[in-house]
Amino acid sequence: RQGFVPAAYVKKLDSGTGKELVLALYDYQEKSPREVTMKKGDILTLLNSTNKDWWKVEVN
């Protein structure tokens, strides 16, 4: 499932696989259909980080 999360809630990881991955630093509950819920410690695939406030991710 793809959607947006606050950029301040995730940290980029060095995956070494060519995929950009991020680590969820905090729990986040989606507040609109365009967002996704994540739990602290989740590893997500980063799809787009051009917006400084909201990053598009895919929940694996």
Rank of each mutant, 00 (worst) to 15 (best):
Arg1Ser: 06
Arg1Thr: 07
Gln2Lys: 10
Gln2Pro: 04
Gln2Ser: 11
Gln2Leu: 07
Gln2Met: 09
Gln2Tyr: 08
Gly3Asp: 00
Gly3Val: 04
Gly3Gln: 02
Gly3Met: 06
Gly3Thr: 02
Gly3Tyr: 04
Gly3Cys: 04
Phe4Met: 08
Phe4Thr: 02
Phe4Tyr: 14
Phe4Val: 06
Phe4Arg: 03
Val5Ile: 08
Val5Met: 01
Val5Tyr: 00
Val5Phe: 01
Val5Asn: 01
Pro6Asn: 03
Pro6Thr: 02
Pro6Ser: 02
Pro6Asp: 01
Pro6Gln: 02
Ala7Lys: 07
Ala7Met: 05
Ala7Trp: 02
Ala8Gln: 12
Ala8Trp: 09
Ala8Glu: 09
Ala8Ser: 14
Ala8Met: 12
Tyr9Pro: 00
Tyr9Gly: 05
Tyr9Leu: 12
Tyr9Lys: 06
Tyr9Arg: 05
Tyr9Ile: 06
Tyr9Phe: 13
Val10Thr: 04
Val10Asp: 01
Val10Gly: 01
Lys11Tyr: 09
Lys11Met: 15
Lys11Thr: 12
Lys11Asp: 05
Lys11Glu: 10
Lys11Phe: 09
Lys12Thr: 07
Lys12Pro: 08
Lys12Tyr: 08
Lys12Asn: 05
Lys12Ser: 06
Lys12Gly: 04
Lys12Arg: 14
Leu13Asp: 03
Leu13His: 05
Leu13Val: 10
Leu13Ser: 03
Leu13Lys: 04
Asp14Tyr: 14
Asp14Ile: 12
Asp14Pro: 15
Ser15Ile: 12
Ser15Glu: 10
Ser15Arg: 11
Ser15Gly: 13
Gly16Ile: 14
Gly16Pro: 15
Gly16Arg: 10
Gly16Ala: 14
Gly16Asp: 15
Thr17Asn: 15
Thr17Trp: 12
Thr17Tyr: 14
Gly18Trp: 09
Gly18Tyr: 10
Gly18Met: 10
Gly18Ala: 12
Gly18Asp: 12
Lys19Glu: 11
Lys19Leu: 13
Glu20Met: 13
Glu20His: 14
Leu21Trp: 10
Leu21Thr: 09
Leu21His: 08
Val22Phe: 07
Val22Cys: 12
Leu23Glu: 12
Leu23Val: 14
Leu23Met: 14
Leu23Ser: 04
Leu23Thr: 07
Ala24Thr: 04
Ala24Lys: 01
Ala24Ile: 02
Leu25Asn: 02
Leu25Thr: 05
Leu25Ile: 10
Leu25Val: 07
Tyr26Cys: 14
Tyr26Arg: 15
Tyr26Met: 13
Tyr26Pro: 00
Tyr26Val: 11
Asp27Leu: 02
Asp27Ala: 07
Tyr28Ser: 01
Tyr28Cys: 02
Tyr28Asp: 00
Tyr28Trp: 09
Gln29Lys: 13
Gln29Val: 15
Glu30Gly: 14
Glu30Val: 07
Glu30Lys: 14
Glu30Met: 13
Glu30Asn: 08
Glu30Leu: 08
Glu30Ile: 07
Lys31Ser: 09
Lys31Val: 08
Lys31Asp: 06
Lys31Glu: 07
Ser32Gln: 08
Ser32Asn: 12
Ser32Thr: 12
Ser32Cys: 09
Ser32Val: 04
Pro33Val: 09
Pro33Gly: 08
Pro33Phe: 09
Pro33Ser: 11
Pro33Ala: 11
Pro33Arg: 08
Pro33Tyr: 09
Pro33His: 10
Arg34Glu: 12
Arg34Asn: 14
Arg34Met: 13
Arg34Asp: 12
Arg34Ala: 12
Arg34Gly: 14
Glu35Ser: 07
Glu35Phe: 07
Glu35Thr: 08
Glu35Ala: 06
Glu35Gly: 10
Glu35Asp: 05
Glu35Met: 05
Val36Ala: 06
Val36Ile: 15
Val36Arg: 02
Thr37Ala: 07
Thr37Lys: 04
Thr37Glu: 03
Thr37Gly: 09
Thr37Gln: 05
Thr37His: 05
Met38Ile: 14
Met38Gln: 01
Met38Thr: 03
Met38Phe: 09
Met38Glu: 00
Met38His: 00
Met38Trp: 02
Met38Ala: 02
Lys39Ala: 08
Lys39Cys: 10
Lys39Asp: 04
Lys39Phe: 10
Lys39His: 12
Lys39Gly: 05
Lys39Trp: 11
Lys39Thr: 09
Lys40Trp: 03
Lys40Ser: 07
Lys40Pro: 03
Lys40Ala: 13
Lys40Asp: 02
Lys40Glu: 07
Lys40Gly: 05
Lys40His: 05
Gly41His: 05
Gly41Asp: 05
Asp42Lys: 03
Asp42Thr: 06
Asp42Asn: 06
Asp42Met: 12
Asp42His: 05
Asp42Phe: 04
Ile43Asp: 00
Ile43Glu: 03
Ile43Ser: 03
Ile43Pro: 02
Ile43His: 04
Ile43Phe: 05
Leu44Asp: 00
Leu44Met: 13
Leu44Ile: 06
Leu44Thr: 01
Leu44Ser: 02
Thr45Ser: 08
Thr45Glu: 09
Thr45Phe: 13
Thr45Gly: 08
Thr45Pro: 15
Thr45Arg: 14
Leu46Val: 06
Leu46Gln: 00
Leu46Tyr: 02
Leu46His: 01
Leu46Glu: 00
Leu47Phe: 03
Leu47Arg: 04
Leu47Gln: 03
Leu47Thr: 04
Leu47Cys: 06
Asn48Thr: 07
Asn48Ser: 13
Asn48Pro: 03
Asn48Leu: 08
Asn48Glu: 14
Asn48His: 07
Ser49Asp: 15
Ser49Tyr: 08
Ser49His: 10
Ser49Lys: 09
Ser49Asn: 09
Thr50Asp: 15
Asn51Asp: 14
Asn51Gln: 09
Lys52Pro: 15
Lys52Tyr: 08
Lys52Leu: 10
Lys52Met: 11
Lys52Ile: 11
Lys52Cys: 10
Asp53Gly: 08
Asp53Glu: 12
Asp53Cys: 15
Asp53Ile: 15
Asp53Ser: 12
Asp53Val: 15
Trp54Tyr: 06
Trp54Pro: 00
Trp55Asp: 00
Trp55Gly: 00
Trp55Arg: 01
Trp55Asn: 01
Trp55Ala: 03
Trp55Gln: 01
Lys56Phe: 15
Lys56Gln: 12
Lys56Thr: 07
Lys56Tyr: 15
Lys56Ile: 13
Lys56Val: 13
Lys56Pro: 01
Val57His: 00
Val57Asp: 01
Val57Leu: 03
Val57Thr: 00
Val57Ser: 00
Glu58Ala: 10
Glu58Pro: 00
Glu58Gln: 11
Glu58Trp: 06
Glu58Met: 10
Glu58Leu: 08
Glu58Val: 08
Val59Leu: 12
Val59Pro: 07
Asn60Tyr: 14
Asn60Cys: 13
Asn60Ile: 14
Asn60Met: 15
Asn60Lys: 12
